[in-house]
């Protein structure tokens, strides 16, 4: 007997939730309990009184599973709203990464040149290293990191994705 898997799609989900103790565990635990994937998850409170947080989750799965994920999230008591940005129309998504690169000579010059092409900022420097700050889509950051890997990548920190619907209206 072999176990078969279905074709997956990537979706970006945007949630507003009550900013209360245990909310992250509740959401992340629901994903593990039901066998769903999390590619990235970001969270921060977004109202003046700190009562509501926005959580952005990048997940993947077959369309039926994505529908289930949304329904399961929606049914958690502290979840106000769940929107599938991927379905809801054009949206902007961004991620921030800090990328540490070490090297001297040609590699160092090449790293700076690439950073310029990618509009990455230098936020720390020593004679032998840089930390670049780069924002963009996940794909752009992946490409940048891939290039740096060849010329002295030391380590990276990434925030995970945040996203908003384009245009004047809220999600």
């Amino acid at each position: 007997m072999h176990i078969t898997e279905e074709q997956s799609e990537r979706h970006v989900l945007s949630l507003t939730v009550a900013n209360e103790a245990g909310i992250l565990a509740r959401i992340a635990g629901m994903f593990t309990a039901r066998g769903y994937n999390i590619e990235s998850l970001t969270v921060a409170d977004i109202t003046q009184d700190h009562s509501i947080s926005r959580i952005t989750i990048v997940t993947n799965g077959p369309p039926r599973v994505i529908d289930q994920i949304i329904a399961q999230l929606d049914r958690l008591v502290p979840v106000h709203r769940v929107v599938d940005l991927t379905e809801a129309g054009p949206y902007v998504e961004r991620e921030l990464a800090l990328v540490k690169v070490a090297g001297t000579g040609d590699h160092r010059i090449e790293a700076l040149r690439l950073a310029e092409v990618f509009r990455a900022k230098v936020v720390d420097t020593t004679i032998e290293s840089f930390i670049f700050e780069i924002t963009g889509t996940t794909e752009k950051i992946d490409t940048f990191v891939g290039l740096m890997r060849q010329i002295g990548l030391v380590e990276i920190g990434r925030t995970g994705v945040v996203g908003l619907i384009r245009g004047k209206d809220p999600i």
Partner: peptide
């Protein structure tokens, strides 16, 4: 009454 029950097993 629970939307997550719909289309979970059977479309």
């Amino acid at each position: 009454i629970d939307r997550s029950s719909v289309n979970k097993n059977v479309l």
